[in-house]
Write a protein that binds this DNA or RNA. Structure first.
Lengths: 161, 161
DNA sequence: CGAGTGATTGACCGCGCGGTCAAGGCGCCC
DNA sequence: GGGCGCCTTGACCGCGCGGTCAATCACTCG
């Protein structure tokens, strides 16, 4: 799907993603033009379209990247904690501190939720999170540490937090 | 500041506000053009600009209107309840059910928070809400029903809910 | 050196946006 | 009827957007 890139190319790509994330989160998606992004990087417009098919695709990629990063953080925090209740608690705490450190990603997600075409991605991410929580809850029920209720419903509540 | 209007004019104005709120909340502010709004009302473009100076102003007015309506609802719910702790609880519950009933207003506020020029209005509304809460908390402290802490800080927490 | 290819430039395009305005309808009062 | 003022129309304007592309650069490798 994507081009083959040299090392230099991969760096440019990341550079664009970082700058775009910064501008999107500061001014908002619609008020940040592609021209703004390339201008603040002091490069021509073609550079942007060499690395990304469209402004929209770039944004979706930022969204997905943020979600992956968050999930990685959760899993690192949970580690090999055996108690499912503690696992859930650690996951929630990790998410909170992650969002605290990555305010700009938080802004991106918040905006994404207000526009249907991006909300789809957000919903998908949410479902992944719910699936994660469901697994822990089922473990908790098996061990008798959590009341036997519909795991899906409880998971929704956890993610809602 | 605004024009003088006949009864018919006031109705048109409300009609536009309702339709705009609907479209903004469904598709988002930027994806809803003034042309969309007037088209869905089957009127010419000039009608819009007869009643509103700009698309931006209309949005701000919707934001302010939503805030006023929410606040009215809170005050009605609180009524003459004497206990300050109960007052706060009733206020929070009223806010929750109001947002539940007015999802579209919720979407508007959510979007507004992502764009600086509108976030200013949201912050102002927030400050009003905090001022309200501060008053109740001070009452609570005087009566000894709430621990003696910085009322401002506690109020922030209440509004955060 | 020259060929090949990844990377870059910026003028250019078409479009749809927010906003304007001259013109005219409609209803009411004298 | 005639005049007045609220309201409506829609063609029109300028602009800045997302996106394209022919030309060119620059690095590597034989």
């Amino acid at each position: 799907m994507s081009r083959k890139l040299t090392q230099r190319g991969r760096e440019r790509r990341l550079q664009i993603m970082r700058e775009a994330a910064r501008l999107f989160s500061e001014r908002g998606y619609h008020l940040t033009s592609v021209a703004d992004i390339v201008a603040s990087l002091h490069v021509g417009k073609g550079v942007f379209y060499w690395y990304f098919p469209s402004k929209e695709e770039l944004f979706v990629e930022l969204l997905r990247g943020a979600h992956q990063d968050l999930r990685r953080r959760q899993q690192a925090a949970i580690g090999d904690e055996p108690d499912p209740v503690r696992r859930i608690e650690l996951g929630i705490r990790a998410s909170m501190s992650w969002f605290h450190e990555h305010r700009s990603s938080f802004n991106l997600v918040q905006f994404a939720a207000t526009e249907e075409r991006f909300a789809i991605v957000v919903r998908h991410n949410r479902e992944v999170a719910i699936a994660d929580a469901v697994r822990h809850i089922k473990d908790g029920i098996v061990e008798g540490r959590i009341a036997d209720a519909d795991p899906e419903v409880l998971a929704e509540a956890v993610v809602g937090v």
